[in-house]
């Protein structure tokens, strides 16, 4: 899988990974994030070989996979504090308002709809200060407003020299993403 692919990622870019179902898009993100180990190949970060110890990379990394990493029994604000304990109450308020989740701040996640859960997971993009984002299908189950919000956030991040890798099957017109694709 993914044989012969060599990607160089530079800061200040949004990259959309294209590929048919089963091509290994998610696996690529997982391998970079350190969920899976690569069968072959190497991963370098800031000139350092991180193939075997992904920790230097993971300090700057935010990964959102298909399963979002949300605990059903936590409330929305507890969830955000779990991943970002240092978040200021004001920041939390603003972000939740922006994402339309402010009324649910003290609701347990299990009571929310799929799109709302996705928003909860994505709220980490606003509060955590990580340079590299790996997003697996971040637009899935989002409504139009949320898609626009996320696109805006990605643009901001890119202009602030962040790096975004994402996969999607939806057409994201306003994002000026470099597209990387391969076939198996």
């Amino acid at each position: 899988m993914c044989a012969g692919l060599s990607v160089q990622l530079v800061a200040g870019e949004a990259i959309r990974i294209l590929g048919v179902n089963g091509a290994g898009k998610s696996s690529l993100l997982k391998v970079i994030a350190g969920v899976m180990s690569p069968l072959k190949g190497e991963i370098h970060y800031l000139g350092q070989d991180v193939t075997h110890d992904r920790r230097p990379l993971q300090q700057d990394l935010l990964y959102l996979g298909h399963s979002l990493g949300i605990k059903n029994l936590l409330t929305v604000s507890e969830h955000i504090r779990h991943y970002c304990p240092s978040v200021l109450p004001e920041t939390l308020q603003t972000v939740l308002t922006q994402l339309g989740l402010i009324d649910y701040a003290d609701t347990q996640v299990k009571a929310l709809s799929a799109g709302q859960k996705q928003r909860v997971a994505l709220s980490r993009l606003w509060v955590e200060n990580k340079a590299l984002w790996l997003l697996d299908e971040p637009f899935a189950t989002l409504d139009v407003n949320a898609v626009a919000l996320l696109e805006l956030r990605i643009k901001q991040h890119v202009s602030a020299d962040g790096l975004v890798l994402f996969t999607t099957h939806q057409e994201v017109l306003s994002l000026n993403a470099r597209e990387v694709s391969w076939l198996v």
């Binding site: 997982k30 994030a33 993971q58 399963s67 605990k71």
Partner: peptide, 16 residues
């Protein structure tokens, strides 16, 4: 079980 289902285990792995 629960951590596996909701993706928390993945987040443990990438948390550094």
């Amino acid at each position: 079980k629960e951590d596996y289902r909701d993706g928390s285990l993945e987040q443990w792995l990438v948390s550094g």
